[in-house]
Design a protein around this nucleic acid. Structure first.
Lengths: 344, 344
DNA sequence: GTGAAAGCGCTAACAA
DNA sequence: TTGTTAGCGCTTTCAC
């Protein structure tokens, strides 16, 4: 328990104060406080005791400014109200902690564009973070690239093609393919693919593209519904297609799948009785109870790889910009066959 | 688009560099860069242009160190894999942004104790944040208190009785009461209350206590099952009680409710046919499809109030420690009657 | 309107 | 082992 001196404002206590109280110089106090360099054990003890007594908290800004380096890694995060991002956030955090990396996070509102993103990026860069983990699609390669040779950047979740920016990402094309194969194997040959437009969600776009081509290659006909960001967008069109004979609706995300299920219910239809439905993400608690047919994205693997890569980049910091290849690791999730999709 | 000078490391560009390039002094460059103080418009233009060209990014640590104050508010967060916390996080972020506050976040692993928490707290305090929003129960009042008079502290989500620490929190006792009243009104008189133990989840404990007393006051008999952190803990006991004649199981969280639903299904039972089930939180996407009977906690209101309070405290910074009362605002959620609970 | 100078709190050689 | 001496990059009076 650090108890601050009565009336003595702990956060305004400096090393000088501690040093003076302990009767040593600032330098000695600094060393003893961080336990590096040379100092007499008993001196340290005294210094530590004084620091404790005064409620000293090292001023990180000053320390890192003086030291010329930062011990923390910056994390740019997309809105965490989406459980998939919340979980990724959580796992990145755990992993970083396991590996002894300190993370500071700044988030960007879900639907905010350019200015805000750049602002957040600058906040982090302004802190001179040792590295940057980017877990939001909202920021573009062009915005990141100028800094790629000054600080290691790892993109988590989404693929990135820019040179010098490493990634640990979901293999969304494979995800789409796996789901589509499943639907094909159930005998569906007339399928709706419901997805956010490319500029709305790149991940959904990748999944949907893969679904479509896999379906087509498998001899099925595809009705592609490209929707807005809201999960309910495009649901009506999808249902129309069902009434027109489609036997399955493949959604590019579980949120859309939920929206479809609601609409189905409202329309007095059911899955898989009247139509098979699939989603993608597999993160929702309770998805099993709903019997959602989905694909569990490999959040843990992506988080672990992102942090591991960052740590490696941080260690080999002596390396020149081109000494190491750009790391790009895709991870494939696992199909979760549920009860919302069945054979025709 | 900020494009850094070819070969010129943007993050190593200092005001001095910008000043030199623009042919002015550091002082002038500083003023022009932040648009405060006196300077000729055309001078500023030139300086801004050079800064842009060189890819200058202000070193926040140095700036705040020199200025002696910080523009950011620190947020301590509990593991965000829980959607309820993820959403709170998201809303706090939005709200802070709306009000022009910058937030930096550090998270603490879900099940980690003391050391880790204190460490995170010190990381934030070390940055000399202007204020602290604490959205994790893991940190105790005792740990916070020493700093309460040095930096405004607002606890979000959980109630806090310590003097000087403000709060915007869920009114969990009312939540428990509302749910219990609902169950009573459905005619249940033999009810299981399934909750995490007090030291496992204080919120659950509060809810469960309120449920119990409300039920008892309503003439019902209560079987209290105090479980561990895992949602499945205590579920078997609850089911045993049901076989013994209990007609309803009230869970202190939706996670437990889901666990109960699973167990019910596995046992070939159903809700509300064989037993009524309720939860609490109401955050899960898809809860409506499952028909969960729950209570939607007022995340938005809590987030808004927390940030608003923080902003007010920050404005009235001149005020002495005792000039303003400790703010403590409870918020009540809304009952969501679902199909998992029905009349006896 | 602009510049010179004195730090902010801490660290890191280098002496002692 | 400990102290001295320079700064880190920026802000901010206060003269000019």
């Amino acid at each position: 328990m650090s108890s601050s001196e009565p009336g003595g404002p702990g956060l305004r206590v400096t090393v000088s104060d501690v040093a003076a109280a302990a009767g040593v110089s600032r330098a000695t106090a600094t060393r003893a406080l961080k336990g590096e360099g040379r100092f007499a054990p008993e001196t340290q003890e005294r210094i530590l005791a004084e620091a404790e007594r005064l409620g000293y908290v090292r001023n990180t800004m000053a320390a890192e400014l003086a030291a010329g380096r930062t011990g923390t890694v910056g994390l740019m995060l997309r809105d965490a109200s989406n459980p998939a991002y919340g979980l990724l956030f959580s796992r990145l955090q755990d992993e970083a902690h396991r590996r002894g990396l300190d993370l500071v996070t700044v988030t960007i509102g879900a639907d905010v564009q350019g200015a805000e993103q750049v602002n957040a990026l600058h906040r982090l860069l302004g802190m001179r973070v040792a590295g940057l983990i980017v877990a939001t699609g909202g920021i573009t390669a062009a915005q990141l690239e100028p800094f790629a040779d000054q600080v290691p950047i790892v993109r988590a979740g989404r693929v990135e093609t820019a040179e010098g920016i490493h990634t640990a990402h979901y293999d969304d094309p494979s995800h789409g393919e796996l789901l589509a194969s499943h639907v094909l194997s159930l005998g569906h040959r007339r399928v709706v693919v419901l997805s956010g437009a490319e500029d709305v969600s790149f991940a959904e776009h990748l999944r949907a593209s893969a679904m479509s081509s896999t379906l087509v290659d498998g001899g099925a006909s595809v009705i592609l519904v490209s929707a807005g960001a809201a999960p309910t967008d495009g649901v009506d069109e999808a249902l129309d297609a069902v009434r027109d004979g489609a036997t399955a609706v493949m959604c590019a995300s579980d949120y859309r799948q939920l929206a479809v299920m609601r609409a189905l219910r409202a329309a007095g239809l059911s899955a898989p009785g009247d139509v098979s439905v699939t989603g993608c993400d597999g993160i929702l608690p309770g998805a099993d109870l709903l019997g959602l047919t989905t694909l569990r994205i490999p959040v843990e693997a992506v988080a672990a790889a992102a942090v591991e890569t960052m740590q490696r980049l941080l260690s080999g910091s002596d390396a020149e910009s081109d000494s190491s290849e750009t790391v790009r690791q895709p991870f494939v999730g696992t199909l979760v066959p549920g009860s919302t999709a069945a054979a025709v």
